[in-house]
């Protein structure tokens, strides 16, 4: 095994250039080194001007999503040796405006997230003194998968619909809405219906399925969206057939 590998980093420095440029760095190729270790090596030893986000380096905080050789990846959980002998191309996540180098602007998602009301909505809140809302392990399993989202944005980066239709709510936001819709403690599904069933919601999705392929936590947002389509369509038929009072 060679002892070095080339990282081709796509850099955008708003003060210097209009267009991003590729800059190559040689970093040590070592067992257990993630792409992220390569990037911190560059930052610490070769070029302090390289900007990227990272924090937990254990695949749970969702900071370090980037495009590695064309695929959206958590760079802390993607290893240099898997790309040997290289070179490895590291780009910012696709489908987001780039602020600088590998740092993208996820403000759009942060603005959309509250619109799907991702919190427990109850008709009547019980006081905590009365104890927990009971929930069996089976009821927990109904939504558990969709609660695993770390908001890393890899699904948005993989989604061509989001690229073409920036108003699209997107995979993670819809999956999180479904996470609450399917939670036995929640009674807010009807409050989320308008936004989810809007043209920017589930109906914009053409089931490319790339969001689920990209998801590092097996959340399967594509499934969340398809399931909600079926729910919404059934609901629409019911609304159409039944008089208002009988719904």
């Amino acid at each position: 095994m060679a002892d070095e590998i080339t990282l081709e980093v796509v850099r955008y420095r708003p003060e210097l250039r209009i267009e991003p440029v590729v800059q190559s760095y040689q970093v040590p190729l070592r067992e257990h080194w993630a792409i992220l270790d390569g990037l911190t090596y560059i930052k610490d030893h070769l070029d302090g001007t390289l900007s990227f986000r990272w924090s937990c380096r254990m695949g749970i905080c969702g900071s370090c999503g980037m495009t590695v050789n064309g695929d959206p990846q958590l760079t802390c959980a993607t290893f240099l040796t898997d790309y040997a002998p290289g070179p490895v191309r590291v780009e910012p996540l696709r489908n987001f405006p780039v602020i600088r180098d590998l740092v993208v602007d996820i403000g759009d998602f942060m603005d959309k997230l509250p619109t799907v009301k991702p919190w427990v909505i109850r008709d009547v809140d019980s006081p905590v003194e009365e104890g927990e809302y009971l929930q069996t392990p089976e009821e927990l399993d109904e939504y558990k998968q969709f609660s695993m989202c770390i908001n890393c944005m890899l699904c948005y980066s993989a989604c061509p619909v989001y690229a073409l239709e920036p108003h699209f709510l997107g995979p993670a936001a819809i999956a999180l809405a479904q996470r609450y819709n399917l939670d036995s403690r929640d009674e807010g599904a009807s409050e989320r219906e308008d936004i989810l069933s809007s043209p920017e919601g589930i109906w914009a999705c053409t089931f490319v399925g790339e969001c689920s392929a990209a998801c590092p936590k097996d959340v399967d947002p594509a499934a969340a969206i398809q399931r909600y389509k079926l729910t919404a369509a059934t609901q629409a038929i019911k609304n159409f057939l039944l008089p208002r009072g009988a719904r």
Partner: peptide, 16 residues
Amino acid sequence: MTTRRRPAAEPLLWLL
């Protein structure tokens, strides 16, 4: 929040 327009046709078209 503003209530969004919910397309009436889309669910039917999707079912078809």
